[in-house]
Every structure is written in structure tokens, then in C-alpha cells.
Amino acid sequence: MLKVDNITVEYDGVPVLENFSLDLSTGQVVCLVGESGSGKTTVIRAILGLLPEGGTVSKGDILFEGKSLLHSEASYVESLRGRDITMIFQDSGAMIDPISTIGSQFIEYIRAHDRSLSKRQAYQRAAQMLTQMRLPDADNVMHSYPFQLSGGMRQRVGIAMAMTFEPKLLLADEPTSALDVTTQAQIVRQMMDLHIYHQTSIIIVTHNLGVAAYMSDLSDRILVMKKGRVVESGNREEILHHPKDPYTKELLAAIPTMEGEVYVDQ
């Protein structure tokens, strides 16, 4: 359903992602893990056509259901965005308008993509999604301004929005790294439900290799990135138990565990 074909992305003429390819079929999961600054967010933004100013795909093509996203009219890509393809931003806090309530933004978002819904229906749908993300007291969240929510609560508002329309493709950039582990576990289960019951394909960026391994099946892929390139790719068994690239090995070795060494005298 999605084919990223050998793309190179530049910011102001400087390439930050080179010859990147990825194939995703319906209902598949791809996990991007790797170095900070290696271009993971860039991949996701390029697919959605949301590169920041100065950023361009200078080479290659991106096809969604066989149609180029780079060479289609802007209106086509816009019609997909927010409905068939949705994104959870690494920094949802920064994506939310600070001066209007969560409720008014969420309702506006829902009605922009489904005009058949009344304001009241949109409110109910939004509140239901917030509850599903384990946010306490959805009505209060709806009436809150972003500054009145904690970091992880804002992040969950972003996740709720991205999951509202049961998209065909969910692009999730570090969706759970701002969350405590029990909430993270709930959100991961929500994403997996979407994946299982609605055949949603998922590209997830995460620093948590455990999450990557949990979300991907043996038929799915984990891509390890460093300095704008994929250094290794494979299924979870290959990446976790038979890593080949030294960087993958370095990453695996650096994961703190509950049984691991402690760094301070206690």
C-alpha cells in the first residue's frame, strides 16, 4: 500500500536522509529505531508531505496505493491527511494550539474530516477517544487549555486524534516515550487493536526496542538507522538475537534493564 522508493531528503541543500526505501503492505508494521538525528522524523514527515521549510525530497518517489504522493495535486494529499493517513507527532505538545481548548481543536479536527457530524456528535466522539486513551475525566480535558495538561496528557490527546478515523496508515513518531510504562502499555495495546481490527498499517518510530519488538510480528520489519541511512533491517528475531551491524549491537547493549548494573553507590 505504501512504497517509499529510494528517496533522498535535503534541508537547504544538505542531504540528511539518503537512498531510503521502504515497502509496507496492508496490515503490516514497520519500526524505525536508531540514532538521535538519523532522519526518522524526516522519513515520516516526507511521507505526509509535511517537511519543514527548506526541506525537499530531492530524489526518488513515494507511492500510496499506487499513486505518487510527490507528484499528485496538493488537494489529493490533503484529502488523505488526517483521515486515511494520520500522524502522531513526536512533540504533540508543540503541535497543539496553545490558546484554544482541547475540545474546540478536537471538534474542529473531526468536523473538518467528517462534515456529516454535528458539533454535539463530534464532542461525544472526541470525549470517547480521550477516555479510550485512559485520560481521566474527558469532559475536563475537553474544556482545558493545553497548559493545564501534563506532558503525557497532551501527547495522549495527539494520539486520540490520530486514531479517531481508523486510518489506513498510522505514522507514529515516538508516540509513547512521554508516557509512564503502564500508560504506554495501554496505548500500545490500543494501537495493536487498531492494527488487528481495522488492518491499519503502522510505521512507528521508537527508542524503545522492546516496544518495537512487541509491535512487530515475525513478518514485519525493524529498520535500524544511523546518520541518514538504514544500517540494518530484519524481523524482530534477526534484530534482537542475530544483529549484524555494530551499531545495532551497540544499541542492544546500551538498554538499561531491571537486572543490569547500577551506576551509583547506593
Binding site: 540514532e35 538521535s36 506532558g151 516515550s177 512521554a178 527508542h207 538498554i255 538499561p256
Partner: peptide, 11 residues
């Protein structure tokens, strides 16, 4: 929460 945005090796 300063390390959650970092890969484990930079972390």
C-alpha cells in the same frame, strides 16, 4: 524526562 527523546546509546 530528559532522556526519553534520546536513543539508548546517546542516553
Amino acid at each position: 524526562e530528559v532522556t526519553s527523546a534520546l536513543d539508548v546509546s546517546v542516553q
